[in-house]
Amino acid sequence: MNEHVAGEPLVKYRNIGKRFGATEVLSDINFDIYPGEKVAMIGPSGSGKTTLARMLMTLEKPSKGTIEVGGELLWHRNVNGRLMEANASHLRKVRGQIGMVFQHFNLFPHMTILRNIMEAQVHVLGRTKQEAKEQAVKLLEKVGLADKCNAYPAQLSGGQQQRVAMARALVMKPKIMLFDEVTSALDPELVGEVLEVIREIAEEEEMAMLLITHEMAFARDIADRVVFMAEGQIIEQGPPKQIFNQPKHQRTMNFLSRFSAQSQSV
């Protein structure tokens, strides 16, 4: 597998289930992510990948099971051996280790690019404005947008906005970053620039990454491990080569063959 993967997992999903009303979107998921590990998650839409990531970001509450981050329970507290629901301040404490990039960027439209990246540094991490600005500029340089400091999000292309969103998440120095179909909302010609930045981040940064994507070639390229999900379950996982070249499950084969047929027809 991969040289980063060692020691205790950073994230542990245990017996996680999620229902929306009568429909079960996740059933009994057990899943680990190790420090520094780059995990790509693939599967048909509606298979529960996004829900899994959103639970880690505390945007969606599990119906059952537990999630641990860095050895601490995320949604629960252990009180005298009993699991109690975590309060807001506990969620905030654990959530600090997690960052997320969204499908629709979700930049703050009323702030300049620079302020988008500075706001949480100043008000969440307590950095000085000077420091926050330096960090922001450094990351904007990294994603190739240093000249857009004073622009507003609406003045940027989708690809540029997504690169800013990545800088905004990166600057918080999370231990794990979630990428939720970050290229799905982009015009095809803008996908490349965003993938390029993700690749760079994956190569240079120490943090773990969970990448939900439909870009198979890209997943194969940068991931240490690929996870295939369908109908709320993890069907199989393993090194990219194994999953893409010798999938063990019929479902995986079907999915991958449909996918390559599709991408060839485009």
Binding site: M57, L59, R92, R95, G96, G99, F102, N106
Partner: peptide
């Protein structure tokens, strides 16, 4: 205000007041 704005501010770990 679009829900994504709320979600982005949670992802940046802002306090409810912030």
């Amino acid at each position: 205000v679009p829900k994504g704005q709320f979600e982005a501010s949670v992802a940046l770990n802002m306090s409810p007041f912030r």
